[in-house]
Computed example of a mutant assay.
Amino acid sequence: DDELGINAFVAGYRSIDMVLVVTWGMLQTLDRYELQGLIAHEFSHIHHGDTQLNLRLVAWVGGLLSVSQVGSWIAQAGFSLQRHVQRDRQADAIFIAAGGLVWLVGSLGVLMARLVKFAIL
């Protein structure tokens, strides 16, 4: 009730679970026709299933980001083992290369998912 910003959004996964939220500032600032246009715009998001698509994209980006972070962690662990423990350097190099490859795949996936997201927006 005390939000003075002008904003509206739709949240939910299925059309029967959707909720349309408008701020108090929007209700106070916009006239009837502007408010109708904005509400119609938000209803179009419900009609076209935009929130489902956005949630799926968020899940994909989050999953790919996790893969990228695991790859980074593996590579960093390989570097750490190489510095602190005198052992087989070839095994450490394989560890670092595998981690780097996993990181690269995850990072490219995140980049592609973000490009798809921007194309859809």
Rank of each mutant, 00 (worst) to 15 (best):
V102Y: 01
F43C: 10
L55K: 10
V19F: 09
D88I: 03
N7K: 11
I74A: 11
Q82V: 01
N7E: 14
Q86A: 13
W24L: 06
G71L: 02
L35A: 08
W103S: 02
A59D: 10
F79G: 04
A91I: 05
Y13L: 15
A40Q: 12
A91D: 07
H48M: 12
E34C: 05
I39V: 14
L104Q: 00
V10A: 10
E34N: 15
R89F: 10
L35R: 14
S66G: 12
L104T: 01
M112D: 03
V58I: 06
I16D: 13
G71S: 03
V116G: 03
V21S: 09
W60F: 07
L27D: 15
R83V: 06
A75Y: 00
S66H: 10
Q52E: 08
Q69P: 00
H48G: 04
Q76S: 14
A8I: 09
V10C: 12
H45R: 10
G25Q: 08
M18S: 13
L38V: 14
H48Y: 13
R83H: 07
R114Y: 08
S44Y: 15
S66D: 09
H47V: 11
H84I: 01
F95I: 01
Q28Y: 06
G78V: 04
V85E: 08
A77E: 04
H41N: 10
R83Q: 12
L35K: 12
Q76T: 10
A98E: 01
A75L: 02
K117S: 06
A91M: 08
F79A: 02
I39D: 06
A97P: 02
V110E: 00
V19W: 03
A75M: 06
R56C: 05
L55V: 02
L104P: 00
A75S: 13
L20Y: 05
V105K: 00
H84P: 01
W73F: 14
G37D: 15
D92E: 06
N7P: 08
V110D: 00
L53V: 13
G106Y: 00
H84Y: 08
M112V: 05
E34T: 08
V67D: 01
G71I: 02
A113E: 01
R14K: 12
G5Y: 15
V102D: 00
L4Y: 07
V105R: 01
V110R: 00
L115D: 03
G71P: 01
V22F: 15
E34P: 12
W103L: 03
G37V: 03
F79P: 00
Q82D: 12
G109S: 03
D92A: 04
R14Y: 13
R87W: 13
Q28L: 11
W24Q: 15
V61A: 12
A91Y: 05
V61I: 14
L53R: 08
H45E: 12
I39N: 07
A93W: 04
L38A: 05
A97K: 08
S107K: 02
H84D: 05
L4E: 14
L20Q: 05
R89I: 11
G5P: 03
V105N: 00
M18C: 13
L35Y: 13
M112R: 06
G25P: 08
L115G: 01
V10D: 11
L57A: 04
W73H: 07
G63D: 00
D50W: 07
D2L: 15
G37K: 13
F118N: 09
W24A: 15
I94S: 07
N54D: 05
F43M: 13
R83P: 04
R56Y: 08
V110M: 01
S15V: 11
I74N: 05
G63S: 05
V21E: 06
